[in-house]
Design a protein around this nucleic acid. Sequence first.
DNA 1: TGTACATCAGTGAACGCGCGTTCACTGATGTAC
DNA 2: TGTACATCAGTGAACGCGCGTTCACTGATGTAC
Lengths: 231, 231
Amino acid sequence: MWPIEIGARGCAKSAKRFAMSWRKGGRDGRGYHHGNLREALISAALDLIGQKGPAGVTFAEAARMAGVSTAAPYRHFRDREALLADVARQGFEKLSAVLENAWDGGRPNATRAFERTGRAYLGFAREEPAYFASMFESGIPLGSNPQLQASADRAFSVLREAAEAAAAGAPEGRRPPALMVALHIWAMTHGIAALFGRADGPLRTIPMPPEELLEAGLLVYLQGLGLGPDS
Amino acid sequence: MWPIEIGARGCAKSAKRFAMSWRKGGRDGRGYHHGNLREALISAALDLIGQKGPAGVTFAEAARMAGVSTAAPYRHFRDREALLADVARQGFEKLSAVLENAWDGGRPNATRAFERTGRAYLGFAREEPAYFASMFESGIPLGSNPQLQASADRAFSVLREAAEAAAAGAPEGRRPPALMVALHIWAMTHGIAALFGRADGPLRTIPMPPEELLEAGLLVYLQGLGLGPDS
DNA sequence: TGTACATCAGTGAACGCGCGTTCACTGATGTAC
DNA sequence: TGTACATCAGTGAACGCGCGTTCACTGATGTAC
């Protein structure tokens, strides 16, 4: 599993080096079969997104980076869109893991865990801009791919769970719908990430880190729900 | 001015029709000079964005839609990016006008005017998805183009002004920084627009209109600032 | 008012390039017996 | 354990296509005199 991670994070050439070293357990350049082309293509696509955005991803270039012929990708993906959808799916799964880890069952209290989860979302957008772009800016409709949809739903369900816990702490009688709270938090977090938190140039520079902006925003919002900072 | 608007809103063929009818004041197909090619190309680019997203915009296709040769666009735009930047600039200017109109000087009170402004932002995202995509999803760095930057700043300044007014209404002693309020509101509004308010398929379907989600979110947030619904 | 001329905004043909896609093929792998 | 064979995952050559870009050109427009 971990070689994939390394491939996904490296520079343009890392995908090819990764591909080569993977072949037949390290015998560079040997071996007719690639052995792990599917993941190598995903890794190449991530590099390309990082360099040129989702529009810059082509089958031909990805194949070149993986060190195979231009016809090889067709063994694994129907077309360019299928490749991008798989990248996005992986991205949602990584995001789910990151968020679940940050939420940590709502310890020590909902507010603190909430902030941690929001920060994790921003951290993901900042550290994995390629994944983030594939998920939200590649123009792939989620509905077209059940697996992709399921992965996205799983990521959202973490926010949903967090919102349930937060809503439960609200004063009796004015308990807000948890779904609504989850959507508000998601929207604010996503808005901050998309507008100010991108590593590849924010839309507008702001006089504070995105994390602090989000933390302040969450506090104001939770305050508005009647939730103090310790609930 | 208005023929541009019509061209921008029409279907794929409207750009060409618009281009033709504009020539020499209506003498269809006559005239060596187009007369308004620059705007016709922008209009064509909008149609293409609407059909295929910002990545689907090409010089060649835009020229074809405008009814000119593929070399003609070079008289008006250095390259594809310059064309897209101009589309985005127009978009920001339209958005500025829409927001200013909705804010209406903060009448009758800040909260009401705030909600109206947020709705206007959502309305823009919904009714002008092509402009919206060119502004936020085309991958053009704002900083690369001073005019574009200025237009974007102008749009934001409306939100900034609204936030000033809202912050001024907060209780003595816990008056929040207006810039922060503006950024929070922008982020939540933009997040809702980007995630749920797109005409071309939201990321997730929600059980209420985006406008209501935003209205509720704004109310909770302003409540958290210590601002009641009538302040 | 007419004319000459500079400038502007187009034409259309041409070119190289990279991408998508298909094809018959072949080396490697796994498995039945 | 060895062998035959089916299947899998690649090759590499080829093709058509559309895009970006350049070029010498030409029709239309505006203006100086």
